[in-house]
Amino acid sequence: MLADSHPRQGERLDALRAYDILDTQPESDFDDFVNLAARICDMPIALVSLVSHDRQWFKAKTGLDASETPLDQSICSHAILEDGLLEIHDTRTDPRTVENPLCVGENAMLFYAGAPLVTAEGLPIGTLCVLDYKPRRLTDLQRDTLRLLARQVMKLLDLRQSLRDREALHREMDHRVKNSLQSVSSVVRLYARGVTDPAASEVLEAVQRRINSVGALHEALQGAEDSHSVDVADYLGRVCGLIESAAPEGVTVVHRLASVRLSARKAVGLAMIVSEFIANSIKHGFADGRAGTVSVTLEPESEGAMRMICQDNGIGLRSDDPDPSHAEGLGRALVEAAATKIAGRLEQHIDESGSRLTLTFPV
């Protein structure tokens, strides 16, 4: 006997679709419920059955090979019309099941008990049910347990839905943050083009690098399972790529970075030092238009410590250079502040072969 449609069938089906659970892969969390229900009720078959518009589909099952049945074979479609647990002691004598193909012939299912899976809005989307090949009755404890397990199945479904909603909101927020950073970066770049004061231009360039660094960090955190740490090889690689894209022709930025996860705070400090060194090398080490390379290396220094080396093969030491390190006021201050923030030991050196910066810091 085909069950009648639920009085709120449209809303019920919308609620079921919202859980995005139909035709998903088996999951141990749901399997645990059917295995426990089968053991407590001493039944050969237990199912988490979801009733759609044209079929009932089993998210979890034990004792049954089929993954779904059409509605004309669905006892659960009758169960969702009840206010509470539906128990059919002998399916051969109940008008709802007497002609059901599953309840006649060899291996007929002669007992059914199903506790509805009900949303917070009172909409039944399926059942947690148990079946047997012989007529029988549940005990009061078994009935109470089946109802309790059905409520726990719904809590699991609601939790999964909440997590999906939160992830969707997080992706939207990430998208907006990324767009905002790009907008701010564009504004700073436009202002920098019209500035003639060298000091102001230096500040705007430093701001531009910092925005790009934050944008790269945000992108790295987006793809990370741990939102508090990043793979520094990936992050610093992006920072180097951003700076190289603005470098003059002939100047190449290369990097060899150990893959290690560091806190976002330390990663930002390293990015600040790398971006300032590369920008300083481009400005001074290759000021005469020569081609060359800036390299960044990150490697283990000892147990519990890392070493980062930034170097270039630019102009190097010049007799007429009043500042042998080439590091100017703002850049020097930013690098030193970043090193201090991550408890790093900073060494800078310049000679005829180019400039070199070494940073040793604890992991």
Rank of each mutant, 00 (worst) to 15 (best):
A267F: 08
L298P: 06
S74Y: 00
R332M: 01
S67M: 04
S186H: 07
S186Q: 10
L346N: 05
H326Y: 06
R17D: 14
A200L: 12
Y19T: 03
P198E: 14
R96I: 14
S227W: 11
A267V: 10
R166N: 09
F33I: 03
M173L: 09
T24M: 04
E219M: 15
I342E: 00
K61Y: 01
G344W: 03
G316W: 04
D20A: 05
L181F: 11
L217C: 15
N179W: 04
S52Y: 01
T293S: 13
E121H: 11
N100V: 06
A192Q: 07
M43N: 00
S353R: 08
L163T: 12
A224F: 08
A199E: 05
E167Q: 12
R345F: 04
E347C: 10
E347P: 06
D94V: 13
C41L: 00
A224S: 14
D234T: 15
A200C: 11
L131Y: 04
E172D: 14
N100R: 07
L357F: 04
L141I: 06
S180W: 09
N179H: 08
S281N: 07
P101G: 06
V98T: 11
M154T: 06
G10W: 08
H284Y: 15
A258G: 08
L149F: 07
D312S: 11
Y112H: 06
P322A: 02
D23L: 08
V214P: 11
R261F: 05
G304L: 07
V251D: 15
L138K: 01
P70H: 02
T297D: 10
Q73V: 02
T196D: 13
K155L: 14
Y191G: 05
V104Y: 11
S180I: 11
R171D: 14
T24V: 06
S275D: 14
G331S: 02
E68Y: 00
H349L: 09
N100H: 06
D288N: 15
V253L: 14
R160E: 08
D144G: 09
G289H: 12
E301Y: 13
R137H: 09
S325N: 03
C310P: 07
A200G: 10
D32N: 14
Q152Y: 09
V239M: 11
L148I: 05
D321W: 07
T139K: 00
V51G: 00
G292Y: 11
G292M: 12
H6L: 04
A108T: 15
L217V: 15
R55Q: 03
G289S: 13
L22F: 03
S52V: 01
Q152W: 09
M154F: 08
E244M: 10
L149M: 13
Y19N: 02
Q348T: 10
A115W: 00
A267Q: 05
T91K: 05
V153W: 00
L71F: 03
S229A: 12
T196S: 13
R332F: 01
S183Y: 07
L50T: 00
A337E: 04
S275V: 13
Q311R: 12
L221D: 08
H326T: 07
L169A: 09
D32T: 14
T297G: 09
P95G: 07
Q182V: 06
A247N: 14
V188A: 12
I45Q: 00
V230Y: 05
R265S: 08
N212H: 10
V104F: 11
E301N: 12
T139I: 02
G331Y: 00
A264E: 05
L149R: 04
D140E: 15
P7K: 03
